[in-house]
Design a protein around this nucleic acid. Structure first.
Lengths: 341, 341
DNA sequence: AAATTTCTGATTTACGTACATCAGAAATCG
DNA sequence: CGATTTCTGATGTACGTAAATCAGAAATTT
């Protein structure tokens, strides 16, 4: 059986109340006594029963998620995961509120962050647009000892406590290698569709992609990046234009959202044009396109994992506990048509 | 605030004791009363506080893991994950015992299973060798109402409650597509290294691999399967022999363990021979080989996830609860040199 | 209608921790 | 040395559930 507070009290030769004062860092314990208790705790290997502790304190964790609006499937999925988490909130002693702000809108994001100042929050999670004003607003919350976690996309320079998302440089590199290897030794152009260079995840994916392409697949040339603002309709028109402008395009890497538009553009030129395509985010549209051969590979981050990880981290930070970095690592999923879940 | 048993009692107009009888399916409640209570439970949306319930019952779950011996890295990793779980056992109210049996040894496995009959166990997890005697032994345990979970490799025909492992047909198909696409349109032979056709995971991987190869990459021919018994030394010699016997081999798929030997054999012919290689299981050896280019892709199942999932499932079954299938799905990880964890 | 059996209610203790109160001991101060 | 101040012990309640006991009500049988 696992040791309890009673065992500590007996081992240290003090009362339960004193053990409690030491454990919860309450005042009223002499230094020598405190050390005696701490020695006993180490010696018998006591570990607090978190379930019982939570039951006793009945604490709740008020949490805010700041999510961008936009009708692309990835953000839909993310919002739905957060909502799903609100359904479990009574079990997890959380109270989750969702705040929506326009995508890529720095001042709106800053306003949303500043509105949270002075609130008694256990944590704030945000999909960050990477700008100095945002760093500052985040740091203001951090200064107030509110745990802040970036979700999906990180901030370059800020005191945020944690980033819950994939390694986007690695994702870009992986995309490049898949595309490069799938294209064998062929020569040709590659077009890249991004959402916006204002967000760090897209910049990093491009960075990793370009690096591997340049170093290992010199026969493939990158065309200027198309910025589709994660908007299906804009993505469709940009890609269509690019495909008709250059007949040398043999590969496409879509590193943002709005793939519905990309897929429409691809289908319009199929099967005349043979294209190898790697995209990000598994949605109903990319899944179907992967199945029918329009897309060759999908890189994915599991939005559900990210949301749950973010919540775990915020709760841990709010309790002043450390997080197990390895356990909170978000994996990059690679889907071909054969291993779809 | 979340509703409690007291709220149910008040809503149903019965006593706490009656609510408890209904909730824990104890006898002594008339049908009409039981229905009244169940209606109240549904109506106020009561959900049992599992933490408090576990605290109150103080139940422990005795669990046995049956693992094959063998010095390949994958089984080492699996054993170490199970041991790691034993360290957490006091938190999770489990009491885990590990039983080791020789790999691919049907009668030893049956003996180990039968030795567990009549014990009061919350669950048995085993890496199964797929044979009728094993199906029968597993079914004997199931008949005694002991939850049984297969780990890594499943059984064809048995009443085991759950399988904690990847979809091996999908894994084989994925390997085929990666290898096929990486080899462009080239002609040549593919050699397949397996552990043993006695285990279902290896058979299924081969099945999926062969199917996609035949259907989509007709210019690649499969050579007869090499059975390395997951033994590094045997694997090395088999692969070396095969490579010198046929100069047409341009690809290798290793679907079992013992990759240390495969890698040694590959390094012996490098860089003269250009080979595209896809293997299973990320270990220190395959990781290094992926980094240095000896291997092109690694398919992986996360042993830690499998062990934790198996434990969750056994506990749920022991409590008569259902498992959330989707949550217990083990994902197939694909690693290229760019996305190693 | 009495005797029995089957339900139900009321109450209590327990799980391991948090937290509050109050009395008394020990240390420190004047 | 007495008067504070600071520390410690003893004790009780609470969290939400499990589980047991016993008395009494209701239903069933005789």
């Amino acid at each position: 059986m696992r040791p309890t507070v009673h065992d500590i009290a007996a081992a240290a030769g003090v009362s339960l109340a004193t053990v409690d004062r030491v454990l919860n860092q309450r005042p009223g314990v002499r230094l020598v006594t405190r050390e005696k208790v701490e020695a006993a705790i180490r010696q018998i290997g006591y570990v607090r029963d978190v379930a019982a502790a939570n039951l006793a304190k009945g604490r709740i964790y008020p949490i805010v998620f700041i999510l961008p609006t936009g009708d692309n499937s990835f953000m839909h999925g993310l919002r739905s995961e957060v909502r799903h988490a609100t359904l479990r909130s009574s079990f997890e002693r959380t109270e989750i509120r969702i705040v929506e702000v326009p995508a890529f809108d720095v001042s709106a994001l800053v306003a949303a962050l500043d509105a949270l100042q002075g609130r008694d929050l256990a944590g704030v999670a945000l999909v960050a647009t990477d700008a100095p004003e945002v760093w500052a607003a985040v740091d203001r919350l951090v200064y107030e000892r509110i745990p802040v976690v970036t979700l999906v996309s990180d901030l370059t320079d800020s005191a945020r406590h944690h980033y819950a998302g994939i390694d986007n440089i690695a994702a870009g590199r992986t995309a490049a290698r898949l595309l490069g290897r799938f294209l064998g030794g062929h020569d040709g152009d590659i077009t890249v569709l991004a959402g916006s260079m204002l967000v760090r995840d897209h910049r990093e994916r491009l960075e990793g992609f370009s690096a591997v392409m340049a170093a290992e697949f010199p026969r493939l040339r990158l065309l200027p990046v198309l910025e589709g603002r994660d908007d299906p309709e804009l993505a469709r028109s940009l890609v269509s234009k690019a495909l008709s402008a250059s007949k040398d395009i043999i590969g496409v890497y879509s590193l943002g959202a709005g793939n519905r538009g990309l897929i429409a553009a691809l289908k319009a030129v199929r099967p005349k044009r043979e294209l190898t395509v790697v995209v990000h985010e598994l949605t109903q549209h990319t899944r179907a396109a992967l199945m029918d051969g329009t897309i060759d590979a999908v890189l994915n981050q599991d939005a559900g994992h990210e949301v749950r990880s973010a919540i775990r981290v915020m709760k841990a930070k709010a309790d002043g506990q450390s997080v197990i970095a390895d356990q909170e690592r978000i994996r990059l999923d690679i889907f071909l048509k054969d291993n779809l879940p």
